[in-house]
Design a protein around this nucleic acid. Sequence first.
DNA 1: TCTTTATCGAACATAGTGTTCCATAACTTA
DNA 2: TAAGTTATGGAACACTATGTTCGATAAAGA
Lengths: 183, 183
Amino acid sequence: MDRRQQKTRAAVLSAFEALLAEKRYEQITVQDIIDRADIGRSTFYAHFETKDSLLDYTCRKLFAHVFDDHLSSETSHDFSGGERTADRMLTHILYHLRDDRKRYTRIFSCESADLFWRYFQTQFGSLIRKEGLLEKSREKGVPEEYYLHFYCSAYMESVKWWFETGLTVPPEDLTLYFRRVTG
Amino acid sequence: MDRRQQKTRAAVLSAFEALLAEKRYEQITVQDIIDRADIGRSTFYAHFETKDSLLDYTCRKLFAHVFDDHLSSETSHDFSGGERTADRMLTHILYHLRDDRKRYTRIFSCESADLFWRYFQTQFGSLIRKEGLLEKSREKGVPEEYYLHFYCSAYMESVKWWFETGLTVPPEDLTLYFRRVTG
DNA sequence: TCTTTATCGAACATAGTGTTCCATAACTTA
DNA sequence: TAAGTTATGGAACACTATGTTCGATAAAGA
């Protein structure tokens, strides 16, 4: 890949994330981005079809950063240990989110980024299956799809709440809260 | 109030709701609305500051329709009966939503209408207090605000899931599901 | 009837998106 | 190092949508 392309791409992404830390996605204009990245308008559109594509790309990247990099290395996809192991992982995600709080705050509140949550939900779905929680849905007497939706959104809403309170609660405690209300 | 104003207002609101049943809020233009309502552009802006104001107004109206009209008449704000009474009310809301499904489907999926959910959450909050569920938060060992947030969003997400599945589940059953997973 | 006022319609300013074109500069490869 | 390829810059452009302004007209209320 051409060095120029790499530089441009990196400049755009970093400009975008910086802007995302300052204001909501909806009020960021392409002009803002290219000013900050110090590139021409046509150059931007040579890299990204639309502004939404950029958001999409960024979400995917952040998502991969949360799940692929950190998650798999931690537990090597072995959740046979049951809730204990899964808890360690959930807590691990929270630590990661807190470390990069600036990046994620805007993504979470960004109205167009339910994209991020959709990925989250997909990934979370496979987690739940590994935990064998779909059997729990039978115990509780609710449909599997309902339980899946409930469980995912409960975690997502926990995280949202966490960010709203300014991340004052320790990650371990939040995981505990989540377990207690969903258990 | 001038008869002309009333007519115009009614025309706008009905045009807006009709459009909302056809496409998402984001892709509805002011032009669409005034074409359908058959009024002049300046007339629209004489009634509503912006397109968002119209959405805001509509959300408030729908919200009042769900809560004030139906809810209070049903149980007269007496939730001392505990879960049984509250369940009847939750189910009642679901019936109302299903009867007017076309109106609500778009509102629920409209990205700018977390407004509606905010109202919902506020109202739900007072419900929970009356149910004495904040004591339950102590039993469960989680902060009250966390439990409130969790409980509200669990109901909201249940409703969202319900609409996604095309309202196939009977209202009574959904209330049951909700109770089983949050109980 | 007389006065008030809501509406129409067209034109306007503003702002943002995404496209096109070509000269220029930077990069790759041979 | 030279030749050829390709990314970039920058300006101009078409397009869409928002929200404003204003004077003429028609409908309402007193």
